[in-house]
Design a protein around this nucleic acid. Sequence first.
DNA 1: GATGTTTATGCAAGCGCTTGCGTAAACGGT
DNA 2: ACCGTTTACGCAAGCGCTTGCATAAACATC
Lengths: 355, 355
Amino acid sequence: MSTTPTKGLLPDKRLHKGADLKSLAIQLGLSQSTVSRALRGHHAIPESTRRRVEAAAEAAGYRPNARARSLAIGRAETIGLVFPLERLQLPETNFVDVLAGISTVVTQRNYSLLLSPFRDDEVAVLGKLASSKSVDGVIITRPLVVDPRIALLNQLGLTFVLHGRTEVQEPYSFVDTDNDASFERLTGLLLDYGHRDIVAVNGLSHFRYAAARAAAFHRAFSARGLEAPTEAVEFVSMTEATGFETAMRHLAAPVRPTAFVCGSVFQARGVYRAAAACGLTVGRDLSVVAHDDGVRGCQATDLTPALTATTTPISASGEGLAGMLIDLVEGRIKGPVGRILPFDLILRDSVHVVR
Amino acid sequence: MSTTPTKGLLPDKRLHKGADLKSLAIQLGLSQSTVSRALRGHHAIPESTRRRVEAAAEAAGYRPNARARSLAIGRAETIGLVFPLERLQLPETNFVDVLAGISTVVTQRNYSLLLSPFRDDEVAVLGKLASSKSVDGVIITRPLVVDPRIALLNQLGLTFVLHGRTEVQEPYSFVDTDNDASFERLTGLLLDYGHRDIVAVNGLSHFRYAAARAAAFHRAFSARGLEAPTEAVEFVSMTEATGFETAMRHLAAPVRPTAFVCGSVFQARGVYRAAAACGLTVGRDLSVVAHDDGVRGCQATDLTPALTATTTPISASGEGLAGMLIDLVEGRIKGPVGRILPFDLILRDSVHVVR
DNA sequence: GATGTTTATGCAAGCGCTTGCGTAAACGGT
DNA sequence: ACCGTTTACGCAAGCGCTTGCATAAACATC
């Protein structure tokens, strides 16, 4: 008879309440060490024993107590994702895709994912995560131009990976999309179509990506021996409303821009609305292009005319982040490392030629 | 001098690498027991000592090792959220709001949130969570009409809370929105406006909420001494496309329905499109109402005409779930308990009167 | 001053696992 | 038959915390 009482039919072995190592060892007439090693596929354990142990473990529905194991091996086999709670509350679904990518890889690699949202005090959350040792590493997001978290985390000795880049001396690992090139390409496209009075509807200037995009915007001009008009770059939030307002303001100016390059499809949608409000037809009287972060429910193709935009694999960046972080904590790779994901430019119908 | 070497300026105490209990105890000239108890605010520790210990802990940036603590107290102070990965990938942002609510409360109550997505084998995930003891309890979602997970979890002895309800004998705790009443109310509204040929665009029939809504739909008829037309309830997925198809099919039938009651704004949007395709004006030739789960980027007010719909506090259900689960695992309440969140009906312009 | 009661603190045994080191048995070579 | 070498496994010491049970000092009681 088995030591685990069988209540009724057990359609699945996983239904057993898990026993512990000790009971399993006793039941097998082996020591805990041997059982543990057999289960971990240690060498020095003959194939025959391993099989026997594995069978028994399977039958008993045994799984090592994760907390005890963590304590013993000194790793949690868990990574944390630290983010402002609002990223789950705003319309910006972008983050959710990243999250999907992260959790895919984390699960694949047999890790756990700890969600650590914060309202204001990210530093406190990071400190807590580090000192309570509940995770082996963290993913942080939305870097500022010069981001203080890099120094903090290095000092805390907490392994981390940044989603994006930042302009600091300290070493850090990251995964980012190629914002810079994307924006340069979009701007270049407009310039090559003859546009000169171009307005960049950019993100908020304290975020590094926005700063980078502004620089890229200007680079596109200089690469062609041109100079961007003054006050051509607007640093505003990533919403439809700001896209609308910004566009309205510029369309009412004495020198009306002929094109807008936007940081997101949301903003582009606002620009479309402004165009309509001004009696302009996008793709004929006004050109609009954008960087498309693949936001759900707000696709470049949903607009009329369909929006010419660059596109990046959002959930792939989540996968990249998680994979890199796990490699880092397991010591499979040595940081700092960085990875920049490419973008695609998809030409649609929102750009017209200026003669 | 302090035992923690100070590297440069420390703008924040949280920057210290956390020491452990032992060092802290030695440094204070106390035993680990006393320090531990002082930190936990145990009685039998005089105020003076407590202060001294707390100050030292704060200064050293001490936080108990979560894994060791878990092991010792036998609880993980962590709850799990088990869900199909696709819920993060589909346009359905509903789930994200629930998640936001959950993480808010989890954080507030000083717990951690473990995300456990699965691709196919939810049973395996639950079994693993249970036997590896990595969480104190789990939140499960999307109940079937008769959901086998209830029995499974009860057998595994894993505390859980269900988001929704199911028709099983076994005890379970849950938080749900008042689907039944909501659908009955919507249907009743249409009936009271004189509609009789009403089509319910419902969710897939294996989900309990869809079954409940179908029943509610019929209840509304019988409450008025009426009978629903045959094949009035369509069990389809919650997308714009199925809303469109379903509506097109019915609008092409010999007896054309005068109203649709939809399970979500997505479906309603599809119905609107179908109406347009058939040259019908919603709110004049055709009535549409829906249950609004508050999906972002697809609001009842975004449609033209604005959609009459019921609305429920989605993130509140997340908060309810997390709060209930934690109360349960801490033994503050005894299960099973259930909570049904109310809905509001908001009248807009998508309903017309049939004489 | 002997006895009972608080009050303040420490000892040490876990929690369930991993792992360095030790050892007995089996093996191989000469 | 003797002595390395594997081979297969067990012992026991942790990992860092909590907590039941002691203990010692201080105080009150008669």
